[in-house]
Design a protein around this nucleic acid. Structure first.
Lengths: 341, 341
DNA sequence: ATGAAAGCGCTAACAA
DNA sequence: TTGTTAGCGCTTTCAT
């Protein structure tokens, strides 16, 4: 598995390495004759300049790192897709890592990537990082070394470019939509109550309640932990009050809630409207199909890729002010929510 | 965005770079006193040895490249997850790329990765590559340079380690299962008729037909191209013959077939049994839930990661014979297929 | 205990 | 037209 290098070419033609280099790069300094021979030889031997050496020389890697909490979540897959698309188009590669919602894994990943491996980093915080609120690994990162863009799950404690979803507004609008279609008792079911995103959606929900003059009832804000049984929690919820609308803060939960309702013979949407977050593959296909809030993951990825590359390629990068782009959500109304009061 | 290097440390303490290096690496050659000071200073400044420089020196990158045709396909997401898991556990990172089912993009990606960026490559062929049957970019790759493992969509024309699904057997067993449960006219709907995987499943299907003494009817082998309308093809199929079982070769198609049946008031599974390939998120949640063939994507990923790392780390790598691991599928029976004749 | 020098593969001044 | 040298950041002999 010996690599084929410039030196091999140089030795073969008994020329210097720099001559070989110039010939490969089609420099006008080299005679046409020699160039042709060297280029042919290089081609025959599948010579590729070593990117590691080039990276060291040019002090860039043409690679951007992406850290997402969970690759099995369709939202992040879409984000990833968007990043890859734009980054590739601009000549960058992606090195992708998962934090698995773990602070430690996130920390290690960030340290690894920060060691010259990538020219910039796109990261969405793990749930554990957000719940522990430890951001040192990212502060140091952005302070000293290379550009960073945070997406979706972000924190104010780190200064950098950000692309976020307008989760507050999404929570607010979704709740209002349910009110407008005649729902009275709107509950929320969340598995991401510890993340910034989950909290903002709840705040939007609370604002809508407030405007409507309805007191916030924490029993209607169902927090589903890793070990909790959603079915039990749902039973408690439905027995607690005549809930007629449920907002599920992620797609899987929306589907689960729907299935539990069906199983309990609760009619959707006649008795209970359901609206979920993240417009992925599932929601369209279940029946009744689910009304969903789309966060436009692909667009977020594209935007983040452009922001990071812009910053990487700006020579006066440090002087650019950090910006935060807010992506609006769209409510996709399907069968699981009532249309009229 | 100036990087903090050994030189900075050396200058700060007015020592040589090599002394600084040794101190950082806790060499016994350096006085405890100086070591302590240097290590503290390094820590304070978040010094991380430049991985690019180390890669150049050690001639390895501790990174493996992964090229899959389509990241929005749940099977590949699972594979990816498995690769990431095992690779990380063994100290490797993943650089991931999508070929988008395009030969050209695959070619470019492979060339890029082969240029010293990664220590090994895991690849699943794009559909276009398989239909055009051009494998030069991979032959050269495996000949000369770094280890490669092909997964799922592979070709005999390239000598390397492989992890494949027993698609022939899967097609065979699935068809037989349908026969055993009383189905007579088993059709297949495929969007991947050009890929090795799709062809093998069809061959398995044909073998089952043959054993049963049933002539292969190509009208029952529905090929759905990118521009074809599945609904029209399904209508033709159902009008053509009293089909009582349909095998869909990917998950999305299985769901689509199910929905079209429901829409046409064809009862599933009473009138038509449906079995799909790839046990992803969708199949469990639609109703009736879909019986699926699981290819154990995560396991395939884990296996591939181990194979490539084994080969990378073997010093006598070239002498190791190439092996092909075959992963058996499992049929997960749900509601969409009949249980008794 | 510390430093100088070489070298990983490559390019880009600068010489010849 | 071709070659020499230096250097990207680091480690590792081999001096000192």
């Amino acid at each position: 598995m010996k690599k084929f290098t410039l030196k091999d070419i140089a030795t073969h033609f008994k020329v210097s390495v720099s001559t070989a280099s110039k010939a490969i790069n089609d420099s006008h300094e080299i005679s046409e004759d020699l160039k042709a021979k060297i280029q042919q030889y290089a081609k025959d031997n599948h010579y590729r300049p070593n990117r590691i050496a080039l990276s060291l020389l040019r002090k860039n890697t043409k690679t951007i790192g992406v850290v997402v909490p969970n690759i099995l979540n369709y939202f992040f897959v879409q984000v990833f897709y968007g990043i890859e698309k734009n980054a590739n188009a601009r000549g960058y590669n992606i090195i992708s890592c998962t934090s698995d919602e773990s602070y430690l894994k996130e920390l290690k990943t960030v340290e690894l990537l920060s060691a010259g491996t990538v020219d910039g980093l796109i990261i969405s915080l793990s749930e554990e990082t957000q719940s522990k609120a430890i951001y040192d690994h990212l502060k140091n990162y952005s302070n000293g070394q290379i550009p960073m863009v945070m997406i979706d799950r972000v924190t104010d404690e780190v200064d950098c470019d950000k692309v976020i979803v307008d989760d507050f507004e999404a929570g607010y609008k979704t709740t209002n939509y349910l009110f407008e279609t005649g729902c009275k008792n709107v509950a929320v079911v969340s598995t991401i109550f510890d993340s910034s995103v989950g909290k903002l959606r709840i705040q939007g929900y609370q604002k809508a309640l407030e405007e409507k003059g309805i007191a916030y009832d924490k029993n209607l804000n169902v927090k589903v932990g890793k070990k909790d049984d959603l079915e039990i929690l749902m039973t408690l919820l439905l027995n607690y009050k005549p809930v007629d609308a449920i907002i599920a803060l992620d797609e899987m939960t929306a589907v689960d809630v729907l299935n539990i309702c069906k199983q309990k013979k609760v009619k959707v949407p006649e008795e209970v409207s359901i609206v979920g977050f993240t417009n992925g593959r599932l929601s369209k296909y279940v029946s009744p199909s689910l009304s969903m809030v789309s966060q436009h993951g692909k667009f977020i990825g594209e935007t983040a890729a452009n922001m990071i590359i812009d910053r990487i390629e700006k020579t006066d990068a440090e002087t650019l002010p950090y910006t935060t782009k807010v992506v609006k959500t769209s409510l996709i109304v399907r069968e699981s929510s009532r249309k009229t009061p």
